[in-house]
């Protein structure tokens, strides 16, 4: 019995192992991005995803309690300056509660891209957010083309390549 089990199991294990090695680090999806409209974190106006139809959007969920999120903010701000905002935009979705934590943080570490507040996680839940940081790259047609989890310095370089590919 054991030898028969091994005959089936170990080729299966080998296949699974190879699949692991080939599995992409960040899953690539192609589904419509859930639409949202939310209050600008730093002003009274409302920001809607639909306002950016026709542009590539990078949606970045962040919080002040998340160290990699904080580390990513200036890198994404720089990326935005390099790519310009004619065809591309970054929207930062802050999930701090209370929101004042983020407002205080941004006074010390300002960024130029639009920021919205999602303290109850209404938007985060619609995007199926589980870990922080999480980001979503949305193409000109409003489809999610990349789900990115985590941030390490240098990630923005490969991200820039992907965005440029979408823009061309």
């Amino acid at each position: 019995m054991c030898s028969k089990v091994r005959e089936v199991l170990f080729p299966g294990l080998k296949t699974l192992f190879l699949a692991c090695l080939l599995y992409p680090s960040n899953s690539i999806a192609s589904e419509p991005a859930p639409l949202f409209a939310a209050k600008n974190l730093l002003s009274d106006n409302t920001i809607s995803l639909s306002d950016y139809t026709g542009k590539v959007v990078y949606l970045d969920f962040w919080a002040t309690w998340c160290a990699p999120c904080r580390e990513a903010l200036p890198a994404y701000d720089k990326l935005r300056r390099e790519l310009g905002t004619e065809q591309f935009e970054i929207i930062g979705v802050n999930i701090d509660s209370p929101t004042s934590l983020a407002i205080d943080y941004l006074k010390q570490h300002p960024v130029d891209f639009p920021l919205i507040a999602d303290p109850d996680g209404d938007i985060a839940k619609r995007y199926g957010l589980r870990v922080m940081p999480s980001s979503f790259l949305i193409d000109q047609e409003g489809k999610i083309v990349l789900r990115k989890k985590g941030y390490e310095p240098g990630d923005e370089f490969s991200l820039k390549t992907k965005i440029r590919h979408l823009l061309n």
Binding site: A67, R130, V131, M132, G150
Partner: peptide, 8 residues
């Protein structure tokens, strides 16, 4: 369970 810093 991880919610931060570790991408899952």
């Amino acid at each position: 369970a991880a919610t931060c810093s570790c991408a899952g």
